[in-house]
Design a protein around this nucleic acid. Structure first.
Lengths: 223, 223
DNA sequence: GTCTCCGTAATGCTGCTGCAATTTTTGCGG
DNA sequence: CCGCAAAAATTGCAGCAGCATTACGGAGAC
């Protein structure tokens, strides 16, 4: 669990960091909106705790900014500005919850849990071929719902093929999917991977086959 | 938009009905939990407003009941019982928000909107794998219903794995789940955690195993 | 103090992976 | 239909990257 805390009161921040870390939460802390924007670009947080009064502006202004970048982590506003109408303002600008200072850490935790129970709907890209399901994002392959673990390079080849199922994938495309610039290859390493991959897939009864298009590349399809 | 209001104060209920209807919300109102259970069976509400003190019992008890039937409509508790620890209790039993009486209708509306913005599906509160139950939000693990206490970092690793059971979890994802920027790690700390975790799980007879996908990451599955 | 957690590093080992040699397949021209 | 050359498939092998395990010591909790 990874949380971004945007809060300029150092003591409160430190106390929260300690308290939340006991609950197994990893906190990144910053005091300025500008830094927060940068941090958010770099990693994907499970939740964001946001103060309103910050050295470089009103915390709430961060919310639309965040959403516009496509981040949907839940946001809890922590602030001394706790009049009912201020709460309405915060919630309507897009906060998921609003908690007035001072507060019990226990209540913050409970509100965090409440907000985290509802997962960000992330587009799950899964490719079904034959009896096989390939998930290139999670780098996982299942056959008949049982996980199949493949060596890294074979996994890369397979997922490159699966992304373009029933279409020819150029040999050069496959090489690019498996090797980066530094590691040039000399021999028929790719062919070898294909060969071993075929064997593993057929052993597992994946219900797919890898065809070769002579001089061009390969193609994955159901058998 | 259709909402179920479970509230025994007639005047408040009537006022709410009027207020919300101006926002185009349809309210079904009942004063008893028993009736509420019946109503929920019949229609699918977008949200539920729940009082705690009700003629036939504690309102909170309705929440697990509802979830068990597979309804995931967001629930906002409206109540005069507004001590911090009472709020914690309500949220942790599964409410999505908790609003003390008296309140402004505007704030209720704002909280409703906040809650309705969130994706509909509820995350699994608890993950069952093998003989083990993992609760990533509370960070607790049980084997055959007896609590198993694990060191914090091992717990974090385990819950990151459990959230994606049967899927590969990237090494980098695991690292991010356990460490923040300040605490970079140099060595094979993660490997060591995995190793110790394996031992503890097997000692406890958890009925799961952690597989390694060479060059990619790890994967938790039943054995 | 005593205990557990946790990062580090040393050790041993597994099996991935690149290579090359050999065999098989494919497409083409005679 | 056959023969040939180029492309692809297969497989053994050796090197080594990545992983598992464990011991040790520091740090912090109680």
């Amino acid at each position: 669990m990874r949380i971004l805390l945007i809060e300029d009161e150092k003591e409160l921040a430190a106390a929260l960091a300690v308290a939340l870390s006991k609950h197994g939460i990893v906190i990144d802390h910053t005091t300025h909106l500008a830094d927060a924007a940068e941090l958010v670009r770099q990693s994907d947080y499970d939740a964001i705790l946001l103060d309103r009064r910050l050295p470089d502006g009103e915390g709430l202004s961060f919310i639309p900014l965040l959403r516009r970048v496509g981040r949907d982590a839940p946001i809890i506003v922590l602030t001394a500005r706790n009049e009912p109408m201020e709460r309405v303002e915060g919630l309507d600008i897009g906060a998921d919850d609003y908690l007035g200072k001072p507060f019990l850490v226990q209540e913050l935790m409970a509100r965090l849990r409440a907000v985290l129970r509802r997962p960000a709907a992330l587009a799950e890209l899964q490719i079904n071929v034959g009896r096989m399901v390939v998930d290139p994002l999670h780098l996982s392959v299942k056959v008949d719902d049982v996980p199949l673990d493949l060596p890294r390079r074979e996994l890369l080849v397979l997922s490159a093929l699966a992304k373009r199922r029933d279409k020819t994938v150029l040999r050069s495309t496959l090489e690019a999917a498996v090797y980066n610039y530094e590691e040039e290859i000399q021999s028929n390493a790719l062919d070898a991977h294909i060969s071993r991959l075929r064997k593993r897939l057929s052993d597992a009864g994946a219900g797919v086959s890898i065809h070769n298009i002579r001089g061009v590349g390969y193609l994955l399809k159901e058998e």
